[in-house]
C-alpha cells in the first residue's frame, strides 16, 4: 500500500519540481544537447581563409574553411591592382592552387568556395619584388659593386657563380621555408576563441539587461505622476 502511494506520488512531485526549474532547465537541456552534438569532430565552415605566398616564380594559394577543412574545387580568381583578371583556376583536393608570376604588380587572390562562401588574400608589392627578376638584369650592377673591393680576382666566372649561389640559396630557402608557409597558412585557420564566444553571449545578456532597464525606467515614469 505504502509502496503504491509512493509510486503514484513520485511523478507528480517530479512534474511540480520541473515546473519550477522551467526556464533554467530549458537552457540546460539546450546547452547539453549542443555539447552532445559538438562531440562530432567539428570543422568550421562559413569563413574561407585564403593564404597566398610567392615561391620562386610561382604563387601558391591555399584555401580552407575556418577550422581547417580544405576548399576543394573552389574557383580561384587572381586580380591585379586595377581589378583586371590575371588568371583563373580551381583548387585541388588539398585546397591548393598555384600559378606563374609574370608581373611585379600587387595581386588580389579571391577564392569562391561555392554557395556564397568567399575569401581573399592580397599579395603586396614587397612580397613580389625580389622574385620575378631575371638573373641577367641583376648581374651587371651586381658585378661592378661586388668586384670593386677585390679588383684582382674579378672574373666573369666568379660573378656567374655568385649569381648561381644566389639562386641556389633562394631555392634552398624556398624548400626549407615551405613547411613554415604551410604552418602559417594553417595557423591562420583559427576557429572562434572562447573569449569571442563568451563576448558574444555577454553582448546578448547586455542587450536583455538594457531592455529590462528601459522597461523599468518607463514603469517608473508612469508611476511618478500618480
Amino acid at each position: 500500500m505504502t509502496i503504491m502511494t509512493r509510486r503514484m506520488n513520485r511523478p507528480k512531485f517530479r512534474v511540480a519540481r520541473m515546473r519550477r526549474v522551467g526556464p533554467v532547465g530549458f537552457v540546460l537541456l539546450l546547452s547539453a544537447s549542443l555539447v552532445l552534438i559538438s562531440g562530432v569532430p567539428a570543422a568550421l565552415a562559413h569563413r574561407v581563409n585564403v593564404f597566398a605566398w610567392v615561391q620562386g616564380k610561382r604563387v601558391h594559394v591555399q584555401a580552407a574553411f575556418s577550422g581547417g577543412k580544405k576548399v576543394r574545387n573552389g574557383t580561384v580568381r587572381v586580380y591585379d591592382s586595377k581589378g583586371a583578371l590575371v588568371t583563373e583556376g580551381t583548387t585541388n583536393v588539398k585546397g591548393e592552387f598555384s600559378f606563374g608570376l609574370r608581373h611585379k604588380e600587387p595581386l588580389r587572390v579571391v577564392v569562391l568556395a561555392g554557395a556564397g562562401h568567399r575569401g581573399e588574400w592580397t599579395l603586396s608589392r614587397e612580397e613580389l619584388s625580389e622574385e620575378p627578376e631575371t638573373p641577367a638584369s641583376h648581374s651587371p650592377g651586381g658585378a661592378s659593386t661586388d668586384t670593386s673591393p677585390v679588383p684582382g680576382k674579378s672574373s666573369p666566372e666568379a660573378v656567374l657563380s655568385r649569381e648561381e649561389l644566389r639562386l641556389a640559396v633562394e631555392k634552398a630557402l624556398d624548400r626549407k621555408l615551405k613547411p613554415f608557409y604551410t604552418l602559417l597558412a594553417d595557423s591562420l585557420n583559427r576557429r572562434p576563441s572562447v573569449p569571442e564566444i563568451l563576448g558574444g553571449i555577454g553582448y546578448i545578456i547586455g542587450l536583455v539587461g538594457l531592455a529590462t532597464y528601459l522597461r523599468y525606467r518607463k514603469e517608473g515614469k508612469e508611476a511618478r505622476p500618480e
Binding site: 537552457v27 539546450l30 549542443l34 562530432v40
Partner: peptide, 23 residues
C-alpha cells in the same frame, strides 16, 4: 535573449558532410 545566444553558439557546432561543412 536566451534563444539569440543559443543561435549564436549553435553556429559553432558543425556537422561535417561532403566537401563543405554545415552547422
Amino acid at each position: 535573449g536566451i534563444l539569440s545566444a543559443a543561435f549564436f553558439v549553435a553556429s559553432l557546432i558543425h556537422v561535417p558532410v561532403g566537401p563543405s561543412s554545415v552547422h
